[in-house]
């Protein structure tokens, strides 16, 4: 008990912020899974993205935080909500929760957990140390630094990722295209 108290006394303001944010994040993330109504689930996921953006800001990555909000909360989740709203017009269907889907989700979740544990163990073997010779750079994570890195050291993966997006976009347009003779709706 005293250890926990001492731990809380040693924390700085940032530490308290981190703890609070993490608690909220975890609750929101649990809410995503446990909510009965898919709309509440999506809203909880949006809240989770906000908390993650808060974490990015704590790590001094303002650009990443803003882009996370714009892309995930602002665009992708709107489309999710969109689709779910249309689905929800019909009666609630519970048929998707058969035994087979439950088994499949257990297997997938278990695999993910094994993978995460492996990665965590492998990473914890080599904890990055902050050497006093390389001082803290307050500009790390800001737009200029990120842009310079992306367009110099990581130019190939960056361009490949953008080509991937283009391919996905073209594919989506092809799939969504109405062929001659199709009904309008």
């Amino acid at each position: 008990m005293t250890e926990t108290l001492n731990f809380f006394k040693t924390l700085t303001g940032t530490g308290y912020l981190f703890l609070g944010l993490t608690t909220v994040t975890l609750f929101c993330a649990i809410g995503v899974v446990t909510a009965r109504n898919p709309i509440y689930s999506v809203l909880a996921l949006i809240a989770t993205f906000f908390c993650l953006s808060g974490h990015y800001i704590l790590l001094n990555a303002q650009f990443l935080a803003a882009v996370n909000i714009i892309v995930y909360a602002g665009a992708i989740m709107v489309l999710f909500l969109f689709t779910i709203m249309f689905l929800n017009l019909r009666k609630e269907d519970e048929e998707s929760k058969t035994n087979l889907t439950k088994m499949a989700s257990v297997v997938v979740g278990g695999l993910l957990m094994v993978m995460l544990i492996t990665i965590f163990r492998a990473k914890s073997a080599q904890v990055p140390t902050v050497s006093p010779n390389s001082p803290f750079d307050s500009r790390t994570g800001l737009v200029e630094q990120l842009g310079n890195l992306l367009y110099s050291d990581y130019i190939l993966p960056f361009e490949l990722a953008s080509v991937l997006f283009l391919v996905a976009m073209v594919g989506a347009v092809m799939l969504g295209k109405r062929e001659a003779g199709d009904r309008h709706f």
């Binding site: 803003a66 665009a75 709107v78």
Partner: peptide
């Protein structure tokens, strides 16, 4: 500017 976009998209 990104902040504006974030808020507008919300």
């Amino acid at each position: 500017v990104l902040y504006i976009f974030g808020v507008v998209s919300l």
